[in-house]
Design a protein around this nucleic acid. Structure first.
Lengths: 119, 119
DNA sequence: CTGGATCCTATTAGATACTG
DNA sequence: CAGTATCTAATAGGATCCAG
């Protein structure tokens, strides 16, 4: 199937767009992680969505899936070598997010839990 | 309404996430643009979605809307001063998109029209 | 017990027609 | 031309089931 894109933004959104992917990838930048842990970290995602999104990321070459043949089952996801190239991109996104909150809610009306914890 | 985020990625996705926003903002980085032109550039978007997304971006302080009181109507959208801070972020995303295509389709099986035109 | 699949419902996006 | 309203189609969410 031959696909055409109108511009590079279409490419990016095709690969890491949607409601969950950037979020999943963001957590994967901290190293390999098991399904359950990932599900816990990506707030609000369902098992179904998580599996679907991970499969797509695998097919796009950004994530690899490692199955440990044991009971109880253990599956770990991690960034592929090429997936690592997203680290910087995700970092830029996150930084902007942090600045945005400061800009819009300078008096701390809105908080980011992960950062509040580090105090 | 007091909102809480678990991390900065949630913030970013809340503001520029979804199927269309990054795409719209990307075109706005080229300067003020009329509704119809924007609709033409954001491939596949419907009038309804375009209006909805622009309203949300307005409410989040990233986009401003200027109405010219004339017949036929003319409305122009542009980035706000703060919205300009997204320029760099969108740029990083686009660059990654360009690299990704080269990596996955090194023999040019997939093309990006906007770039093909510049040859 | 963990990871994943399936089915059904709820929510959101798309298509079309209409108004100022 | 820009925007709204209504209806339909697609997609996400929830509950439940299954395999190892």
């Amino acid at each position: 199937m031959r696909k055409e894109y109108n511009n590079r933004m279409e490419v990016v959104l095709g690969v890491i767009g949607g409601k969950w992917k950037a979020h999943i990838l963001y957590h994967l930048t901290n190293g390999p992680i098991r399904t359950g842990e990932l599900k816990r970290l990506v707030t609000g995602i369902t098992q179904k969505m998580l599996t679907e999104q991970l499969r797509e990321l695998e097919n796009d070459g950004l994530v690899s899936r490692k199955v440990y043949n044991q009971v109880p089952p253990k599956v770990e996801y991690s960034l592929t070598e090429y997936g690592e190239s997203l680290r910087e991109v995700l970092q830029v996104l996150c930084e902007w997010g942090g600045e945005y909150i400061k800009y819009r809610y300078p008096n701390g009306e809105v908080i980011i839990k992960e950062e509040a914890e580090n105090k």
